[in-house]
Design a protein around this nucleic acid. Structure first.
Length: 430
RNA sequence: GUGAUUGUAGCUCAGUUGGUUAGAGCGCCAGGUUGUGGCCCUGGAGGCCGGGGGUUCGAGUCCCCUCAUUCACCCCA
């Protein structure tokens, strides 16, 4: 075991896996732009207050999961971003995007950091892609982001995902519901676990989220937010459901879906994967009309968005056998040197092939010809090009098709021509 | 932060009630063809058995501590 290993909760992504990441990212870029979203890249760290304000002081993320530090001895505390939305909203407000146009549609792919104990599907550094639809307050907007998210899943071929959806109502609804919940739970104070007792004061909605089996019965009997919604909140939610039905997006209404971030209002949703284990949320999001005000905006900037965990997405794809067909690019031709004194000539040939746009590999550690051929086979090159005395003097090179074992002697120009034929470009995997 | 789990070769793992120079498969390197891969055969390199301390004549095996891993809780992607 080497002395140094990657920091707890982080991992290295090696070339084979990078090919898978690029594939998924490609789909995200394509579909996001199909839906009219443009990419934004914000800094990986922000002033700590941004997250405290934006995500909420009562959340676990802000309470105990942030990587915070001070870049300068007397400087302000900064924090590695634990989520994306606050940073995107900050950027939009800072540059006053809404003076240019009332609506902005932004998407992102980026790394996030949360100081949690790692486990299956959870790391301290992880990646999300997501989209934010800023400046519209409507069921159509939420439906828009949900639809985009679901189309990404569909395009990737994911199966057995479950979309759960709920409404949290507007601020007034929640104030009334909050009171109702508190008066329901207070008589059972003795039964509640420590975490729930704390939430009773700060954020009673979160008690509904508890997985504590002891509380299940109690939670099941709690009043439903749904019964406290005013007419316009109800109509809003029903409209969202209508859009989903219209687009053949299956969903389950889950009245207990609350989600951990304080800024949600009205629609909240979450997608889970049945193959993931304990951390089964693959994506989620909702509407957060109050966030901009929370960040000091003088005008309302209603918004909707979603975020999807890249690692969990890839784990799900892996388990569903959706990654086996994605392979990194293999070299097309392997230049084999037959006498060591011809190495320099071979390097020149390799360079010429590469200049001509042909993926070329060549041995750099003076290995035997047998080894070079084994290497060519190992990395699945399609062709071997032999550089020997005969070739050097005649200018004709032996080109061997490694799949069919056919070998022909050609001038370098003819070699280039053969290698440029599209039909010969990819070797079929054996 | 809490609980449990596992640390032996690059990888996956053996290693008997503590007993000589710690093994296998795969991978890697070389050779079997002095100019030709895959399959096969032969050989080789590579381990302070996670680290520290203790018990013992003797520890990979037992005890303690520590570090790390994994899974779960909490919560989330």
């Amino acid at each position: 075991m080497s002395q140094y290993q990657a920091v707890k909760g982080t991992k290295d992504i090696f070339p084979e896996e990078v090919a898978q990441w690029k594939y998924v990212e490609g789909i995200v870029h394509t579909l996001a732009s199909l839906y009219g979203f443009s990419e934004i890249r914000t800094p990986v760290f922000e002033y700590t207050e941004l997250f405290q304000r934006g995500i909420g002081l009562t959340t676990d993320i802000v309470g105990k999961e942030m990587f915070s530090f001070q870049p300068d001895t007397k400087g302000r505390s900064v924090t590695l971003r634990p989520e994306m939305t606050a940073g995107v909203m900050r950027a939009a407000l800072q540059y006053n995007l809404f003076s240019l146009a009332p609506v902005h549609k932004l998407y992102y792919i980026g790394e996030l950091f949360r100081k949690e104990r790692p486990q299956a599907g959870r790391q301290r550094q992880f990646s999300q892609f997501g989209a934010e639809l800023l400046g519209v307050s409507s069921p159509a907007a939420v439906a828009e982001v949900i639809t985009l998210m679901m189309q990404v899943f569909e395009s990737l071929g994911l199966k057995e995902l479950k979309l759960r959806i709920n409404t949290l109502g507007d601020t007034e609804d929640r104030v009334r519901y909050r009171e109702a919940l508190q008066s329901y739970f207070v008589p059972f104070y003795e039964i509640l676990d420590e975490a729930s007792r704390e939430r009773l004061e700060k954020n009673p909605l979160r008690i509904l989220d508890s997985k504590n089996p002891v509380l299940q019965e109690l939670v099941a009997g709690a009043p439903r937010l749904y019964d406290y919604l005013n007419d316009s909140s109800l109509r809003d939610f029903e409209k969202v459901l209508f859009y989903l039905a219209e687009r053949n997006i299956a969903y389950d209404i889950d009245h207990r879906l609350v989600r951990g971030l304080d800024y949600y209002s009205h629609t909240a949703f979450e997608v889970t994967s049945s193959v993931l284990g304990a951390q089964d949320a693959i994506g989620g999001g909702g509407r957060y009309d109050g966030l901009a005000r929370e960040l000091g905006s003088s005008s309302d900037v209603p918004a909707s968005g979603f975020a999807v965990g890249m690692e969990r997405l890839l784990i799900t794809m892996e388990k569903q056998g959706l990654l086996t067909t994605i392979n990194p690019l293999r070299p097309l031709v392997y230049v084999v040197v037959q006498q060591q004194e011809l190495v320099d000539h071979a390097l020149t040939i390799a360079w010429r092939l590469r200049k001509a746009g042909i993926r070329t590999e060549i041995d750099l550690v003076a290995r035997s010809m047998k080894s070079q051929m084994r290497e060519a086979n190992r990395i699945r090159a399609s062709y071997a090009l032999f550089i020997g005395k005969t070739e050097y003097t005649t200018g004709s090179y032996a080109l061997k098709n490694l799949l069919t074992s056919e070998q022909t002697t050609l001038s370098l120009e003819d070699v280039l021509q053969v290698l440029h034929q599209p039909a010969t470009k990819e070797r079929i995997n054996l």
